[in-house]
Amino acid sequence: MEYVLRDTDIFDPILAEKFDTVILNETHQFEAGKVYKFIASFHVDLIKELSIFDRFILPAASDKINKRKKSGEKDKMYDVLGFQLKQLENILLKNNIEFYSSTIQGDELESTHIIKIEIVEDKSERVTTRKGRKHQQGKVSSVVPSKPYTVNLVAKLSSERLSELYYKIFNVIKDKKIMSEILEIDETENENLLFQAFVKEYGEMWLTTKEREKELFDKLINKTTEVLEKYKEQ
C-alpha cells in the first residue's frame, strides 16, 4: 500500500498526526498475523542545507544532542529523522499494524512538500538459528538521508567486491572455454560476458548472510572442481 501525505515535509511537527489521519480508515487493509515493512520517503533535496535541521525543536527526552559535549549538523539531521521515524512507528503500533522493518529515507520525489509512505508485507524469514537454537530477530529501524547516494555507493562497492572475487577465482584458470562451462553459458572469449554471467549467478556473495554466502561459494567451488576434473581426464 502507498500513501502520499501532501502539504507537509520532514520538518512538520505534526507529521505523525497527519499520517494517523490517513491510516485511520485504512486499517482494514492490514491483516492480523501478517508483518509489514514500513518506508517513509521525503524529498532528498531537503538535506542539502543541513542547518535547517537546527530549526526543528526536539522534545527534551528525545534530544540526544543534550547528552553530547559537541554535535555537528549531521548529528542533528540523524536525530530529527530518527525522531520522526519513531513518531511514525508509534502510529503503526497504535493501529495494531505489526512491523519488523522501518525506514525513513531521502528520495527523488516529485515535490519537496510531500511524504510518501509505503507499507508492504514483509515475507522475509524472521527466525535465525544459532548453535542449534532458534532466535526471533528484533525490529530494525533505518535512517537513510539519501537513497540515491546509498544506492550508488552500494553499486560501486558491489562492483569492486565482485570484480575482486571474479579475478581471484578465474585468474588461476585463464582458459575462457573452461570458464564459460563453469558459468554455464555458451563458450565465449568475451571477458565482459563472462563477468556478467558470474554476477548473475553469484552476485549475492558480496553482501548476504553467512549461510547464503557459503552456499553460493560451495556451489562455485563444486562446479569449478567438476569442470576441471572433466578436462583433467581428457
Rank of each mutant, 00 (worst) to 15 (best):
L109A: 00
Q137I: 14
T188W: 02
L15Y: 01
E215I: 07
D79P: 08
S41Q: 12
V44H: 10
E2S: 13
T208Q: 07
F198H: 02
Y166T: 01
L157D: 11
D54V: 08
L88F: 04
I182T: 07
H28R: 04
V172Y: 03
L58S: 02
F198M: 03
A40V: 14
L15D: 00
E189L: 02
G72L: 03
Y166F: 15
V140K: 10
A155R: 15
L228M: 15
E184Y: 05
V22S: 01
L228T: 02
L193A: 11
T128R: 08
Y202F: 13
Q84K: 09
D186A: 07
A197C: 10
I97L: 09
S62T: 01
K116H: 08
L193D: 10
K70I: 09
S111Q: 10
D79E: 14
K94R: 13
T128P: 00
V44K: 11
R130G: 01
I115T: 10
V44S: 12
A32M: 08
S62P: 01
R55N: 07
K223C: 03
A60G: 13
Q234T: 05
K34V: 02
M179S: 01
D122C: 14
Q29P: 11
A61M: 14
G82E: 11
L58G: 03
S142L: 15
T103L: 14
T188L: 07
R6L: 04
L50Q: 14
G138D: 09
H43Q: 13
L193G: 00
T112Y: 00
F53S: 11
T208K: 09
D63W: 08
L109K: 00
L93M: 07
E233A: 07
R55P: 01
L24K: 12
M179D: 00
A40P: 06
E108T: 12
V199T: 03
V144L: 14
K123Y: 09
E187D: 09
M77R: 11
K174Q: 10
I47L: 08
T21H: 03
L93S: 11
K34W: 04
S124P: 05
E213S: 09
K48I: 13
S142C: 15
T128K: 08
I119G: 06
V4C: 06
I221L: 08
K70A: 06
P145M: 05
L15V: 11
F38L: 07
S146T: 06
N192G: 04
D186I: 03
K64F: 05
W206H: 15
S159E: 15
S163N: 15
V22T: 06
P59Q: 04
V80A: 02
N66I: 05
K48L: 10
E31M: 09
I14Y: 12
M205T: 09
L85D: 08
K134V: 07
E73R: 10
A16W: 04
I221C: 03
L216A: 10
I115W: 02
I47M: 05
L85G: 04
I178T: 11
Y166D: 04
E164C: 10
A32W: 06
